[in-house]
């Protein structure tokens, strides 16, 4: 892979070298016009950490995620992924915005899964998966196809390799989307409400794949309303409201014994809804942990 030009910024502080986080946000602000969506977020995600972002809609979770791969431009602040500043280059005490080509290069290492899947409808599942490796990473089609097969095996869709996205269910589409992101060998995976657009009975199969991925050591940032998933899989849960981090900590701290009244209010609302849904429809593939939350049965 030709890396003709390095875009990494020189490490300013030795402190960062010590236990360098995979993703690091420093005073990240984002405004749309006069509306401030993110008001100075500081956050670090360690390698192999699974972090779940929860919070009411409009709290800025998705925007935060989209800032990390520079689909949204920051208003101010800095974001580093694996030590590289995203979207800007620090030269001579100034930030220079990177050219589109260099930003694209940075995005190769950041996988993203969208709420609406965003599979390419005019390509087969296989073509969707090899598009990035072949077209961006410069892999040979044969090698990429082989890997696509393996990835589909991993998400349990080996038989759908030649299907078009519109022939798949929502859950299958999302699993293909995960495989497509993984084909780029990202250093970190961003999930933007990956199960919110799914029928309740299809949520489990997607969470199952994400659970496996977490177990494999992938660094993951997951914006989700699946409290049960967060509780079971996350290393850390961050609760956001009004563009700010209200509370963060282990799933137990945030989800079971939340200290902030806003967190409590949010969880109460979500759990009522989740209980209603889960009882009726979750399939056998989904171990339901919602019931355990009040008892705090986390080891």
């Amino acid at each position: 892979m030709p890396e003709s030009r390095t875009v990494s910024s020189p490490q300013p502080a030795a402190a960062r070298e010590a236990a360098r986080p995979m993703v690091e946000l420093r005073a990240v602000r984002k405004s749309f016009g006069s509306t401030e969506v993110l008001s100075g977020i500081d956050l670090e995600v360690a390698e192999s950490e699974v972090m779940c972002l929860i919070g009411p809609s409009g709290s800025g979770k998705s925007t935060l995620l989209r800032c990390i791969n520079h689909i949204e431009r920051l208003t101010s602040g800095r974001i580093y992924v694996d030590g590289q500043m995203i979207g800007y280059d620090e030269r001579g005490g100034r930030f220079h915005e990177l050219r589109e080509r260099d930003i694209a290069r940075q995005r190769r290492d950041i996988g993203m899964v969208f709420q609406g899947f965003n599979l390419f409808p005019h390509m087969t599942v296989e073509q969707n998966i090899i598009e990035g490796p072949v077209g961006v990473r410069g892999a040979t089609p044969a090698a990429a196809r082989e890997e696509a097969r393996a990835l589909l095996e991993r998400v349990g869709l080996a038989d759908k390799i030649h299907a078009y996205p519109n022939q798949l269910s929502g859950g299958q589409k999302q699993r293909v989307a995960i495989a497509r992101a993984l084909a780029m060998h990202p250093k970190v995976m961003l999930f933007d409400e990956p199960t919110s657009a799914l029928d309740p009975e299809l949520v489990g199969e997607v969470l199952e794949v994400m659970r496996d991925l977490a177990a494999s050591g992938m660094t993951m940032i997951v914006v989700t309303h699946e409290i049960a998933f967060a509780r079971e899989v996350a290393d850390r849960v961050v609760f956001m409201a009004d563009g700010d981090i209200v509370e963060q900590g282990t799933p137990r701290d945030v989800l079971v014994t939340p200290s902030h009244p806003r967190t409590r209010a949010f969880l109460r609302g979500v759990l009522v809804e989740a209980n209603g849904q889960d009882r009726g429809s979750s399939g056998p593939a989904v171990p339901t942990h919602v019931d355990g939350i009040h008892e705090g049965a986390i080891s």
Binding site: N69, I71, E100, R101, A104, R105, Q106, R107, R108, D109, I110, G111, M112, F114, G116, N118, L119, F120, E131, G132, G135, V136, R137, R180, A181, M184
Partner: peptide, 16 residues
């Protein structure tokens, strides 16, 4: 064409 399609391409590191 849905904006999400462009974003998916961006997320894969594709050039404009």
């Amino acid at each position: 064409v849905d904006q999400g399609q462009r974003e998916a391409g961006q997320a894969l590191g594709m050039s404009k």
